[in-house]
């Protein structure tokens, strides 16, 4: 749900993380992000982009350093508050859509936050309308095409009206038409967007800022045109 915070929404400072002792995945990762920004997270496979995003939604808490989301310090007792303000769109839409119909799935989040049924239905309509799939409201989730599933996944997050939306490879496996549609939808969505992607054209079309990761940390952070236009930099870091 919107906090009304208009400034800094994310503050990641000196974050280190490892799944197993001695095998560090992230090392001294720091960046800040403000409301309204659209930021791409790029880097080679296995560099820790997905892990970083999972840290931001509190799926792993055993990190060192500090993460502040919408003014809340990341820790177990703040998780409920944090998750009200941050939405995560998984790479695999089939994992995100687990209820029978699109409507049920999109309503799942708002209902869990105890909103009235009228408000839930209003949120569902707004979210489906924003991604342009109001006509699929009653459809079964398993019958949707890949592009429709992706849009429905985004709608499940938009219905919670988060301040921050995190997306893991949103353009993967989409045909050109659905990809164009997704770009247009993302341009219409407000708030802070953090998008991990290998699709550099997609990044160019959707994000004005890019963070490049390599060697477990951030190696470049700046305007998308500058970073993606620097071929030497990209090649040096496995892209």
């Amino acid at each position: 749900m919107k906090t009304g915070i208009s400034g800094e929404l994310l503050n990641i400072s000196g974050v280190c993380f490892s799944y197993e002792k001695g095998k560090e995945i992230l090392k001294d990762v720091s960046f800040r992000a403000n409301e309204g920004e659209s930021i791409a997270l790029v880097g080679a496979n296995g560099i820790g982009k997905s892990t970083l995003m999972k840290l931001l939604v509190g799926l792993y808490l055993n990190f060192s350093g500090s993460i502040t989301v919408a003014g809340h310090e990341m820790c177990a007792k703040n998780l409920d508050h944090i998750r009200e303000h941050i939405g995560y769109v998984f790479q695999d839409s089939d994992s995100q859509l687990f209820l029978s119909t699109v409507e049920e799935d999109v309503a799942f989040g708002p209902r869990n936050y105890g909103l009235s049924e009228d408000e839930v239905q209003k949120r569902v309509s707004e979210a489906l309308d924003l991604v342009g799939i109001e006509n699929l409201r009653k459809n079964k989730t398993y019958q949707l095409s890949g592009g429709e599933k992706k849009l429905a996944s985004i709608a499940t997050i938009l219905s919670m009206k988060p301040d921050i939306i995190i997306m893991d490879e949103p353009s993967v496996a989409l045909d050109p038409k659905n990809r164009r549609n997704l770009i247009s939808v993302l341009k219409d969505i407000g708030g802070l967007k953090l998008i991990a992607s290998h699709d550099l054209d997609f990044v160019m079309n959707t994000c004005e800022r890019t963070i490049l990761m390599d060697g477990k940390t951030i190696v470049a952070d700046g305007r998308t045109e500058e970073i993606l236009g620097n071929r030497v930099l990209l090649e040096a870091h496995g892209l």
């Binding site: 998750r83 009200e84 995560y88 687990f98 869990n112 049924e117 919670m160």
Partner: peptide
Amino acid sequence: DRAQVVYESMTLRGFKGDYIPTK
């Protein structure tokens, strides 16, 4: 793994052990 991701998706959308269906 898949079940874990589904569960994560649920918890990130406020699931706390009770499914609240359409009334």
